[in-house]
């Protein structure tokens, strides 16, 4: 007993400080935010316990529901674009024999760029007065767009910017999945006389699902708490048309100094993200082959 417990005991003792530190780093901010979300706390007024007051206020706040709607629309649009395009690019790359290494290196470049750079770059390109995007539309004989300044188009535009940056990331994950598929299933499909499209939908796609869902989980966390590009380009505007839940919570906390209310928004957002990740993880287990 002592011969096995000794090393395992000392391993536990060695790992304990790191585990405690990590737990504290995660648990303390979360617990503190949770505690704040039950306080009525605005800068300049006294802090007191508000019970579920902040959460009840959320239910009657049209900007909160606007934030939920925008967050979900942006999530669905961006995730759909990135998974669809990412899978398509991965399949093209998998079949490409020439320049494969160069193309893969190029693919990495958008998502290594800092979001601030991406936001600033697209802000200039999409400027309705002097940007290149409208110039191209004009050359193509299409009407100009207000892009980020249009309440109608701001969310699709932000989804496009995010997809420009993150579709290659999805493509690389899916490409990894494609490269690990067993060749025997393709040989069997070929012997059975399956067409290329049929092979993709009936063989490749089901086998690729675990990789696609993995990419979806990773992107979901980022997309549901979407912040940086919106903050740089529109700050939630025009007129709250891109005011996602994360931006709304941030503004309540750091611009209007409504700390208790902002904490309630952030706890709600964290719950949504956690729920989505759990649902995706469940889906990933189901898709495993």
């Amino acid at each position: 007993m002592s011969t096995t417990a000794g090393p395992s005991g000392s391993l536990t003792a060695l790992a304990l400080p790191a585990v405690v530190f990590t737990l504290l780093m995660i648990a303390f901010p979360f617990a503190y935010t949770l505690w704040l979300s039950f306080q009525s706390y605005t800068l300049g007024s006294s802090e007191h316990f508000a019970g579920a007051g902040n959460y009840l206020q959320l239910l009657n706040d049209p900007l909160f529901w606007n934030g939920i709607r925008i967050t979900l629309v942006l999530y669905v649009l961006s995730l759909g674009l990135q998974l669809g395009l990412g899978t398509y690019i991965a399949v093209l790359l998998h079949g490409s024999k020439r320049f494969a290494d160069v193309l893969r290196s190029l693919l990495i470049s958008p998502f290594v760029l800092p979001p601030v750079v991406v936001g600033m770059m697209w802000l200039v390109i999409l400027d309705p007065a002097i940007g290149a995007a409208n110039w191209i539309l004009q050359i193509a004989g299409l009407p100009r767009s207000d892009w980020l300044a249009s309440p109608r188009w701001v969310i699709p535009t932000v989804a496009l910017i995010d997809s420009w940056q993150w579709t290659p990331f999805v493509a690389l994950i899916v490409l990894g999945g494609l490269q690990s598929l067993p060749p025997s299933v393709y040989e069997a499909a070929q012997i059975d006389g399956a067409s290329r499209t049929g092979t993709f939908w009936r063989v490749t796609f089901p086998l690729l699902l675990p990789s696609i869902v993995t990419a979806a989980v990773l992107r979901s966390v980022d997309l549901l708490r979407f912040f940086d590009i919106i903050y740089i380009t529109t700050q939630g505007g025009p007129n709250d048309a891109s005011n996602t839940l994360n931006i709304y919570g941030f503004r309540q906390g750091f611009e209007f100094f409504n700390i208790g209310y902002a904490s309630a928004i952030m706890i709600t957002l964290s719950t949504i993200v956690l729920g989505a990740v759990l649902a995706m993880s469940y889906a990933r287990r189901r898709a495993q082959w």
Binding site: P128, A129, D146, L148, A149, T233, T234, P238
Partner: peptide
């Protein structure tokens, strides 16, 4: 609002 909308640059809302 009129000055900005009718005589301002496109995208002036940002």
């Amino acid at each position: 609002a009129t000055l900005l909308r009718d005589y301002g640059p496109p995208g002036v809302v940002n």
